[in-house]
């Protein structure tokens, strides 16, 4: 935690570059990204996070009350280190009022549904709309169909979900927290999209600067 004390204004969200205060001068980047998980109750939001952060699957996992927080660092191939700060929210409608607190300033929102539950898919669409209305502009949205291991009971087709995701400029992936399928990929993709967005913003920023000079 020590190295992050020099980072100002963390509430601005998006991706923050953490200054390297270690003496070893490397060209690796340390990045930080705030993520939030949203979705209907019982679709496996906490299990996805737990699988990613601890590599575990707990079939007796507890109900999330309010929200919980976990962080995990991911080392990418180009020696970039990303620290994910993951906010895992409670699924019950009651807690929906608290959600803005968690998705505010998030670089990416992971909207989860359960492939065996059509209700959870409509709930995911509700969250997408909510984020489009109230989320930070340019927030990266990923649609996740979880419980892919239960494909025998599938009731939301991949095709439908993919079409919906495309229409809403989202990335789509099916995962299984139970078998660990696609869990790491999910977070890597998340990062790629965030980076893409930040990169775009960066260019825009420079363009503005150029305009100012002329």
């Amino acid at each position: 935690m020590g190295c992050s004390s020099s980072v100002p204004a963390r509430s601005t969200g998006g991706l923050n570059t953490v200054s390297n205060d270690s003496s070893s001068a490397t060209d690796s980047k340390d990045l930080r990204a705030k993520l939030v998980l949203l979705g209907d109750s019982g679709v496996g939001k906490s299990c996805i996070v737990l699988r990613f952060v601890r590599g575990q699957f707990d079939p007796t996992s507890k109900v999330t009350v309010g929200a919980s927080f976990l962080s995990q660092t991911l080392a990418l191939e180009d020696s970039t280190i990303v620290k994910f700060e993951i906010w895992d929210t409670a699924g019950q409608e009651r807690y929906a009022a608290l959600a803005p607190l968690y998705y505010r300033g998030a670089a990416a929102a992971i909207v989860v549904y359960d492939i065996t539950s059509p209700e959870s898919f409509s709930k995911a669409q509700y969250w997408v709309k909510e984020l489009q209305k109230h989320g930070s502009p340019g927030i990266v949205m990923v649609l996740v169909g979880n419980k892919a291991d239960l494909h025998e009971n599938r009731s939301v087709s991949s095709q439908d979900a993919l079409e919906y995701a495309d229409k809403n400029n989202m990335f789509f992936i099916e995962t299984s927290a139970k078998t660990a399928d696609n869990i790491n990929q999910l977070f890597e993709v998340c990062f790629e999209y965030i980076e893409l967005f930040v990169f775009k913003q960066h260019i825009r920023g420079e363009a503005n600067l150029a305009e100012d000079k002329t």
Partner: peptide, 13 residues
């Protein structure tokens, strides 16, 4: 419980 869930297959509401 998980077997119970698997036994039920419901595609549409």
């Amino acid at each position: 419980t998980s077997e119970g869930a698997q036994a039920t297959n419901r595609n549409v509401i």
